[in-house]
Design a protein around this nucleic acid. Structure first.
Length: 594
DNA sequence: TCTTCAAGCGCG
DNA sequence: AAAGCGCGCTTGAAGA
């Protein structure tokens, strides 16, 4: 049994200064179900360091004293520890800090993903071999069953390391001008914590029905495929599928490991063949079924609770369990063109729709989504510094259309598509070869590319400028001060993509923090961050806040071009309808309330 | 049996 | 020299 093995800081000692306190929690296990706090540790310059169980009265009270004191706090993964303290019913006081976020801004490419022990070894020169000892115990035991003489010093060292990392990073972040950005990321971490706890309601009945229907269809399809290809095999195995299809189709593309490619783009050219139609439909439905299963198994309380992190290379957010940022939208859509029989096409369409329609508002609320319009592209235009392009954008019109008119002298959907593709190609570093391939249907692809380059020279010039600044200085910096380091192995073209994605991510994260503040103490809540879109569970009583929310999301004076959002709402995530602010305010939301 | 990798797919 | 970028999840296969 875990016991108190040293004195804890007293209330007087804690109140005696306002120095930073490092806090850490150890949980019973490491799955979502076992992430229950059982041990805690602290460190501060004036208090020294220590640890103890949160399940003894003395330990529990000491942990609460430390947490709730108004002194500033640092954790190595703030969001996680805040959740643990929430579980214990503690209100964490003081300014909050997170050494993971700090390090992610200082060294975004770190291979160890900013793990505490790695940083302790590399930056503090400590040999944390206790990590491996504890991991060994952890693989077979819950934390309370690990000998305390092993676990206690480990917990203490975690708190000490986090404290020392903070003092190491603080001047470095200020030095490179990233302190404000870092403070915003901490605030965003708190917002993400609330988003995770709130979760997104799912329609379990609809989910069950859809799963059954798709499952039955898959079984039927499988039989038809076996008959059509004259053998039975595991269709989900790329290897076996490749073998089976090779008897009937001239498959010529191979993967790196010498296996026949069976991905969608390889198979699609053969989609006029009924046999291939069966396979394409099967693949589509198989994917839809496993996506739905993923939602189902995670919706124990009728909601899914995706987990967010912001320690990616560009500072973008990432969500998992389930991957809420990857709900099928349109790319994977299967139409009657792609699958043979009309019944099969209808079934695929329905399966696709059911995946999105599963997400619903809470009773009495409706779903609201506010998404940035072309934000990465706008950001790039800002970086061009071109008065001409900025003015065009300020006009507010469809600028891909304007650009295509400038290039082609006329407008068509096709021209707009080409222009847009080439514009994004510059941001993402598309090669000339790839551009030509994309323009395969055109008579003079090279002419089109040349016309684009001569009509909008600012685009290429800016791309090259960003690249050369990156190569010379070793990094490029966005309008918020975030640095994107040049890596030789990655190449300089990638800096342009990182810069635009990262700037867009920062815009979104500022919006997230502002909007959370506006909705403080309201029932309405942000329930998802889908990169350029915030999704809300919105209650009618808060509808008057909408103009304020919209304005907060669009207010970015540091960017020369307008940053604008679109509003949509609905009774589920499939049936989201785009509306104007006025329409939303005028009571249109009544149709959406669950 | 467990872990790691590649293939494939989805989103922005 | 060549390259569209970022991210996570599921599945099957291979290695340990």
């Amino acid at each position: 049994m875990l016991r108190d093995i040293q004195p804890y800081p007293t209330a007087e000692q804690i109140a005696a200064s306002n120095e930073l306190i490092s806090l850490d929690t150890e949980t019973a296990g490491s799955t979502r179900q076992t992430n229950i706090p059982v041990y805690f540790s602290w460190a501060a310059r004036d208090l020294g360091s220590g640890a103890g169980p949160v399940i003894t009265p003395d330990g529990f009270n000491a942990a609460r004293r430390l947490c709730e004191s108004p002194r500033p706090k640092v954790c190595h993964n703030l969001k996680f520890d805040l959740q643990r303290f929430d579980y214990l019913g503690f209100k964490v006081g003081g300014e909050l800090h997170d050494t993971t976020l700090m390090h992610a801004l200082l060294d975004e490419h770190h291979l160890e993903h900013h793990r505490l022990k790695a940083l302790s070894r590399e930056l503090l020169g400590r040999q944390r071999q206790d990590e491996f000892v504890l991991d060994k115990w952890r693989s077979k035991h819950l934390f309370p069953d690990i000998p305390q003489e092993v676990s206690h010093p480990y917990a203490v060292r975690d708190a000490e390391d986090a404290l020392d990392l903070y003092y190491l990073f603080e001047p470095q972040l200020k030095e490179i001008g990233c302190w404000d950005l870092y403070r915003n990321e901490v605030a965003a971490a708190v917002a993400y914590k609330e988003i995770e706890q709130c979760g997104i309601a799912v329609d379990l009945d609809a989910l069950t029905v859809a799963l059954k229907k798709i499952g039955d269809a898959l079984e039927q399809l499988q039989q038809q495929i076996f008959e059509a290809l004259g053998r039975s095999f595991l269709i989900s195995s790329p290897q076996q599928l490749g073998d089976a299809l090779a008897d009937f189709f001239p498959l010529t593309e191979y993967t790196a490991s010498g296996q026949l490619k069976t991905d969608k783009s390889t198979l699609e050219p053969f989609r006029d063949d009924p046999r291939m139609q069966l396979v394409l439909a099967w693949k589509f439905l198989f994917k839809a079924a496993s996506t739905l299963r993923g939602y189902y198994t995670r919706a124990a309380d009728g909601r899914v609770h995706p987990e967010y992190r912001q320690t990616t290379v560009t500072g973008r957010s990432a969500a998992k369990d389930p991957p809420i940022q990857q709900i099928p939208k349109q790319r994977g859509r299967i139409t009657e063109v792609e699958v043979g029989s009309s019944e099969m096409a209808a079934l695929c369409r329905e399966a696709f729709r059911s995946v999105r329609a599963v997400f619903i508002p809470m009773p009495g609320a409706f779903l609201l989504a506010i998404d940035y319009s072309q934000v990465e592209f706008r950001v790039f235009v800002h970086y061009t510094g071109s008065k001409r392009l900025v003015e065009l954008m300020r006009g507010g019109a469809d600028f891909h259309k304007l650009f295509s008119e400038m290039i082609f002298g006329a407008y068509s959907e096709r021209y707009r598509h080409i222009t847009k593709m080439l514009s994004y190609g510059i941001i993402y570093g598309m090669s000339k070869k790839r551009a030509r391939k994309q323009l395969a249907g055109e008579e003079h692809p090279d002419d089109i590319i040349a016309r684009y380059e001569s009509t909008l020279p600012e685009m290429r010039v800016t791309q090259k400028r960003i690249q050369s600044v990156g190569e010379m200085r070793g990094y490029v910096k966005d309008v918020f001060g975030r640095r994107y380091r040049y890596l030789e192995r990655a190449g300089s073209y990638i800096l342009v993509a990182w810069l635009c994605q990262g700037t867009a991510a920062n815009i979104k994260k500022h919006a997230l923090v502002r909007v959370r503040e506006i909705l403080r103490n309201r029932r309405s809540q942000i329930i998802a961050d889908i990169h350029d879109e915030l999704v809300f569970n919105f209650y009618p009583e808060d509808i008057s806040l909408l103009p304020q929310i919209k304005a907060a999301m669009e207010r970015f004076p540091e960017i020369d071009v307008p940053i604008t959002v679109d509003i949509s709402g609905g009774r589920n995530l499939l049936e989201m309808k785009k509306v104007t602010l006025e329409q939303a305010l005028s009571g249109l939301w009544k149709e959406w309330v669950r």
